[in-house]
Design a protein around this nucleic acid. Structure first.
Lengths: 230, 230
DNA sequence: ATTATTTGGAATTTCGAAATTTTCCCTTAT
DNA sequence: ATAAGGGAAAATTTCGAAATTCCAAATAAT
């Protein structure tokens, strides 16, 4: 191990747990779909023992980011038409309910945060318009998108819904956003769709908000169906 | 089945089932709420090493049955007014959506299974009427109740919804059904409520089904508020 | 030629103990 | 008497290796 690698490893050991880093790498698509994850093999990469990797993988399996069969180890999930549909469907369910509750409970602070997140996002999306995204830009846009969608449900008052949303949102990223197909997407409809969601939320209209979310996902579905071969 | 296979299965039941047995015991309320679970202490009870217990607890923590803080071990969750409300709310959300999808996708087989489960349940509930339940009877009724509610969403077509429902249903049991307060419940309204859910499902009316589920839970809430001190 | 069995190697899981962190109690000082 | 500090005991987490299980290639049998 070189000096640079040693410093890097020490830095990572200090910065955070194996679980968080492994989770990020899986969500970001650094590990190919369906790829097997052998704890001992990945131990040096995360500067931890095989047992520590295994422990992180157990948690990730329970949350649905990797699959695990007894005596058969772990592997990342391979996206399929069914799994993507199930994930999108579940995210709509959670996010619509979170938005509905936020509309009920949210105050001015919620509206302000949501508006701010939307402002940053729509500014970015307007600049993006018509340009094909590379991987780096896609990651940045994805972060802004997530901040907006989290802000939408932030005032729901249920920790369970917030936790579930974080899990399902990241699985959505893992399965559709980060995969190649969206790299070519030019985001023509995004500004209008996010605007519709914001308007419905500020109008305190849960049904309109849910409808806006459904059509938002319809865009993903159309694009995925057109480009993915599965 | 050969002798070797039989021995193998028996062996697995014993050693590999730590997670399942621990889960059952927690859901059944055998471990007091808020109680600390020290792996080494429970190792003899489950005929496994401390590491095996710890592994099971990690999975259960990720699923929401126990809480775990770094360097601070595991403990069962203590029900509170907020946690019970969040769990009930989330279960209504999942179960209503599962019922809605089953109404869309379900065929005669779904209707038949649901009707059968309801028949057994209502027969039991009619006999229960007016009699205070002891712990054993409560456990039996709870099993029939679960079979009915699972049958309701069985045709939803989404493994994710089925898995989430199993998790949230068992947490509901852990937090409200198994706790003492419901021991005195005489189930006056149960027959009518389960009947309303069945009727709405067979009428293929998702909105009525969701409404019936909400009022079903309203009964739990009223009874819990009246008897629990938190 | 195809299917079944054996066998060697690799991977997963389990285990007991070491290393680290927390908790609790006792001492000391204000 | 209360609060702060120190230190021992207990508990949690980590680790490396042993034991078990799976996979696949090679051999044997139909």
């Amino acid at each position: 191990m070189t000096l640079a690698e040693e410093a890097d490893a020490a830095d990572r050991r200090k910065s955070g747990g194996v679980y968080e880093r492994l989770r990020e790498d899986i969500v970001a698509g650094l590990l190919a779909p369906g790829q097997k994850i052998k704890p001992k093999q990945y131990a040096p990469r995360y500067a931890a023992s095989a047992a520590a990797i295994r422990e992180a993988l157990l948690r990730l399996a329970a949350e649905g980011f990797v699959e695990s069969a007894p005596q058969r180890g772990f592997r990342t999930l391979k996206p399929s038409a069914e799994s993507v549909w199930e994930i999108a469907h579940f995210r709509i369910l959670i996010e619509s309910e979170g938005a509905r509750l936020s509309i009920l409970n949210g105050g001015v602070d919620w509206e302000a945060n949501l508006t701010a997140a939307h402002h940053r996002l729509s500014h970015l999306e307007a600049r993006m318009r018509g340009e094909a995204l590379n991987r780096e830009q896609l990651r940045y846009w994805s972060g802004c998108d997530q901040i907006f969608h989290v802000a939408l449900i932030a005032a729901c008052g249920s920790n369970r819904i917030l936790d579930q949303h974080r899990a399902i949102f990241d699985q959505f990223k893992q399965h559709v956003i980060v995969q190649d197909p969206l790299l070519g997407y030019r985001g023509e409809d995004l500004v209008e769709e996010h605007g519709a969601i914001l308007t419905a939320a500020l109008d305190r209209d849960p049904a309109a908000c849910a409808a806006a979310l459904r059509s938002h996902f319809e865009t993903y579905r159309r694009f995925s169906d057109a480009t993915m071969t599965w």
